[in-house]
Structures are given as structure tokens and as C-alpha cells.
């Protein structure tokens, strides 16, 4: 895997079927080895007053019930209080070609005031959509997040062999804003539930 530098990034952004990060409001967003991405104006915030905890195994605990979408008007800000997590997304729509993948990383300027961006940072080949960003304030001061601000950077790398599956089949593909968690759709969860049943069953047999 090779990290693309400015020249290669510019070439990819202009090539037919190449990488797209659109719109780039300023061509200066393409840096020496990364592309700065901006914060969109849609957020998913937690409704902490509704549930004591979130259990992906509980069908009643759908993400829609503990989270809600909020839109911040351009020119206004979202306040991120210490310890608070919100989901945002890139303002730009990103389309990865099959031969590239990307890593989302926070910008050091934001990290220095306590903002952590994206814990699930991998953008897979053939992804198409706005990239959901997990934003957490790890500092002690509330932070004002203004839509449009440069919030993170994409580090783009080559992927081999070229990936060619249908982009629509991706779990979070085609997003035009932050996406709710789909943890409860993980196929393994059912298996894990069953595993628990077997263990309990075994204990029952052994008990006097």
C-alpha cells in the first residue's frame, strides 16, 4: 500500500473514473499527502434521556430510538460539550475507485483543543457517499463546530488487487449525511445470542 502524495492525488481527482471528493471548495484542500475534508451540517445526537443503555441485541433498542438527526444552518454552530459524542459527516461526497482506499484522520489543530475525529476510520474501495465522522470532545471546554470548517483529512492509499464489487451493496454506501449505527444488523449478533443459550443449557444440565 502506497500513500498518494499531492501530485498523485491531483491526478486521481482529475482522472476519468478516479477518486472524487466533491465539491472541493478550495484546491488548497489537497495537501502534501492528504485531502482536507469539511464538516457537513447534519448531525446525529444522542437522546440520553430515553434509554439507560444501548443493547444491540435488543430489537427495541434501535439506533433511531437513542439517536436523532439534527441540522445546523450554515453560518451557525453545534456545541460539543466535554465528553459528548455526535455523529457528523463530511460536507464532501467521496467516491473511492476500486484501486484506492482511505483513512480518515483528525487534524492536529482540532486535536489540540480536545476534538477526536473518527474512531472507525477506514473508507473502503468503491465507497460512495458522505463519510460519517464520530466526533468526541475529549477536552474540558465546550467546542463550537461550524459546518464547512476543515475538520479531518483523508489519507489515500492504493489497494491491491483492485476491488470491484457493487458499491450499492456496502453497509453505509450512498450516504448523503451521517448514518445511524447499524450494529444490530450485524449477522454475528444472532449467532452470539445462540451461543449464550447453549452455554446456559450446558450449565443447567450440569447443575444438581
Amino acid at each position: 500500500m502506497t500513500t498518494l502524495t499531492r501530485e498523485a492525488l491531483n491526478k486521481e481527482l482529475a482522472a476519468d473514473g478516479g477518486l472524487r471528493v466533491t465539491p472541493l471548495l478550495d484546491s488548497g484542500q489537497v495537501g502534501p499527502s492528504s485531502i482536507d475534508v469539511r464538516l457537513g451540517n447534519q448531525f446525529i445526537v444522542f437522546r440520553r434521556h430515553l434509554l439507560g443503555s444501548f443493547d444491540p441485541n435488543n430489537p427495541l433498542h434501535s439506533a433511531n430510538r437513542i439517536q436523532q438527526r439534527r441540522v445546523v444552518r450554515w453560518g451557525q454552530s453545534l456545541t460539543l460539550h466535554p465528553g459528548m459524542l455526535v455523529l457528523g459527516s463530511t460536507f464532501e461526497f467521496v467516491r473511492m475507485p476500486g484501486h484506492l482506499e482511505a483513512q480518515v484522520e483528525g487534524r492536529s489543530s482540532w486535536a489540540r483543543v480536545g476534538l477526536m475525529v473518527a474512531t472507525a476510520t477506514h473508507v473502503e474501495p468503491r465507497f460512495g457517499g458522505a463519510v460519517t465522522l464520530e466526533l468526541t470532545n475529549m477536552g474540558t471546554t465546550p467546542l463550537q463546530l461550524q459546518p464547512g470548517v476543515r475538520i479531518a483529512q483523508l489519507i489515500v492509499r492504493t489497494a491491491q488487487p483492485v476491488y470491484s464489487s457493487d458499491p450499492d451493496a456496502k453497509k453505509y454506501g450512498g450516504a448523503i449525511g451521517p448514518m445511524f449505527s447499524r450494529l444490530s444488523k450485524d449477522k454475528e449478533l444472532a449467532l452470539l445470542r445462540e451461543l449464550g443459550t447453549h452455554v446456559r443449557g450446558a450449565q443447567t444440565l450440569e447443575s444438581p
Partner: peptide
């Protein structure tokens, strides 16, 4: 057709909304 938003025309860096 390519799964992109129809927001601009032209080729980077010479694009227009």
C-alpha cells in the same frame, strides 16, 4: 450514472457549481 452527486461540472481543479 457513476454514483456521484450532480453538483458540479468540469474537471478538477477547474470545476463550477
Amino acid at each position: 450514472r457513476g454514483g456521484l452527486i450532480p453538483n458540479e461540472t468540469g474537471v478538477f481543479p477547474n470545476t463550477s457549481p
